[in-house]
Amino acid sequence: MKSFSFERAQSPADAAAAAARQPDAKFIAGGTNLLDLMKLEIEVPTHLIDVNGLALDRIEDTEQGGIRIGALMRNTDLAAHERVRSDYGLLSRALLAGASGQLRNKATTAGNLLQRTRCPYFYDTNMACNKRQPGSGCSAIGGFTRQLAVVGVSDACIATNPSDMNVALRALDATVETVKPDGQTRAIPIADFHKLPGDTPHIETALEQGELITAVTLPKPLGGKHIYRKVRDRASYAFALVSVGAVIQPDGTGRFAVGGVAHKPWRVEEAESELSRGAPAVSQRLFADAKPTNENRFKLALTTRALASVVEEART
């Protein structure tokens, strides 16, 4: 770990301003991802701004009938919150499908949104990686790709977003609230928050330098059945091969996002209108532009089957 300076932020706006002053600054909350990456020198911040004291760790109701989740709310607390469990079961289930109890106790809502890819080539610093070192190339393409993305990929990157929570937030139409270094706040729809890799896979979100996530809001509850289906080789503590986060209404209509297939939680709203025609039809729309590798082509059929499983579960 390279040496770095450290400060405790006094307010969200202060934190953002402090981050803007130092180009290599990073916010630290739970640290469950950042510290690992710092040990490997994949992340090399020169300055850490501890945001844990900013009192952004509670849930409140919004005027629109939804909820505002503080950026620093721990995954464990969020998953266990009564309002989340009763009205946004999908979010609760997605959270509990991720990581381990110990990690969820530390990990925060904002940190989970910013969780970086688990592509093995991103982690091995002997290998070229455009995310780690822009312009160096992508050694994942043509390599071991079983876990990697099948859709929305580019010639520069085929990494996936590993988060379960993000899949739920995408299906629930969350909004990410932030404060910028100049004190301005903004609300970024979740659909625009995560980026596809394109030519700049190192740019993963819409956040600007220094911009700090303060909250995530969810619109008023959708009702329906909330299902998170995570498919993986082992029963726990593994990243999804494919996951489906869905809210299915009694009439069979619904909405869903898919994890483990793309650089961002994958949702194609037009595909949702195909639900009545069955999972294969939905998948066709979802993966219209898919570019799987030989090793991860199975994710397409697997998503179809996972979707069918979700629809079946909603029916019973």
Binding site: P120, Y121, D124, D233, A235, S236
Partner: peptide, 18 residues
């Protein structure tokens, strides 16, 4: 490249309690 690519305990999965 001639190496085992999944060379940590996140990539090389062994059974967990579940």
């Amino acid at each position: 490249h001639g190496f085992f690519a999944n060379h940590d305990l996140a990539g090389y999965e062994v059974p967990v309690h579940a």
